[in-house]
Simulated assay, not measured.
Amino acid sequence: MNIANIETIALRIPFTTGGPSAGGVWGSKNLQVVDSLVVKITAEDGTVGWGETFGFTAIPAVKLVLDTILAPEVIGRDLAGREKLMSDLQKKFHIFGRSGAFLFGLSAIDIALWDIAGKRAGQPIWQLLGGTRVDSLAAYASLIRYADPELVRLNVRRAVEQGYRYLKLHEVDVACVRAAREAAGPDIEITLDVNCPWNVREALDMAQQLRPYNLRWLEEPVWPPENYAGLASVRRQGGIPVAAGENASTLMDFQHMLQAGAVDFIQPSPAKMGGITELQKVYALAQAHNTTVMVHTFYDGPGLLASVHASAALGGANAIVEWRYFDLEAQLYGDAIVPRQGRLAVPRGPGLGLEPDPDVIRDYRIAL
């Protein structure tokens, strides 16, 4: 059975965030719409699979690569050769870079092909990955950067009142972290993602100031993100567990990070680093290095579902899934994947387990 067609669909959905965004690496100040790119693959028998790439301002480049380069290479290929296809395409196009648009596009294709495989087998992806005993996973509310202690305080309280026991901040100053801890109290687990702003000395100085707030991890404290030796220094000396991996792109990147002893938590991002095929390999690598996988999931389409399936099957009951804490005007899956009391249901249907709402696609699709 071969691949018959690939369609790329860009979506733009308005959202609010409990106050104005201060901006960040993924969006401008006061951002009020979120762009995403989903990929629809149709097999010769009509079976449809859905994938997703990492989005925001990268979408036009990824869509161009998918439409003009990757799709012509994939259409007509055998569905049964998914892993070989992914390997062949990585090798063929490596000269254009081992990250960015090409790998983002391949990630979406891989997720969609897993969706098709599950549907044709009549099994959810978590079953294809070995099965799970959990029917829901804890979610952590991943807040935007507010850069305002009072807004942080307000939105931390809002998330806790909605049942979240785990939170992620994207702040870069101590006052905002202090406000979050004061608002959350001592029993809520807080993580801090600072998006690579500091050199090693600066990161160590900040870690000293942040230690009183009992962070579960400090995420990507060092620039550049591939400075694994620097991350390892912060991990050894900073007194706070270190997390990283959303900017790692290949299995070798993750191997180098783990060999350097750079992280306590490793964070592959399936819509960026090769999809489910590569994600399951990172789990095996991490297990060999006694390191915990916490999948990066700053999206809410098929990429999120892929993370839920992999986390349920390969991470088990202790896995925590990132939930982008946006108040979206519309959800691609309606209420089916929205956390309830801080937990996400693991889909039980075949493949990814849920189908995108065609009305949402119709109403929020944009031309690029």
Score class of each variant (00 low, 15 high):
L79N: 01
A43L: 15
P72F: 04
G51A: 15
W126Y: 07
M86L: 15
L137K: 01
E44P: 06
G118L: 08
I41R: 08
I59C: 06
A117W: 02
M86R: 06
A139E: 13
D135Y: 06
G49W: 04
M86H: 04
S87Q: 12
I95K: 10
L70G: 09
P60D: 15
G97F: 02
S36D: 09
F56Q: 03
A61L: 00
F93V: 01
D88P: 03
R133F: 14
T68P: 10
V39T: 09
I125V: 12
T42H: 11
H94S: 14
D67E: 10
A108Y: 07
Q90P: 02
G81Y: 04
T68R: 12
V38D: 13
V33F: 14
T53R: 01
L106I: 07
F104E: 00
G81C: 08
G55H: 14
Y140I: 12
F102M: 11
E83F: 12
D45L: 04
A139V: 08
K91D: 12
G105Y: 01
A117C: 13
L70N: 02
K91T: 12
K119R: 01
V74F: 03
K84N: 05
A71Q: 02
A58S: 02
A112P: 08
N30C: 09
A58E: 05
L70S: 00
N30R: 12
I116G: 00
T53W: 09
P124M: 13
T132I: 10
I111N: 06
D88N: 11
F56M: 09
D45R: 06
A112Q: 05
W126D: 08
I111K: 07
L113Y: 06
R82K: 13
K29I: 14
L89Q: 00
G131V: 04
T47F: 10
K92Y: 01
A138Y: 03
K91V: 15
E83V: 15
D115A: 07
Q90A: 02
G100H: 00
K91P: 08
A108K: 07
S87N: 15
D78V: 05
D67K: 13
V34E: 08
D135E: 11
F54Y: 14
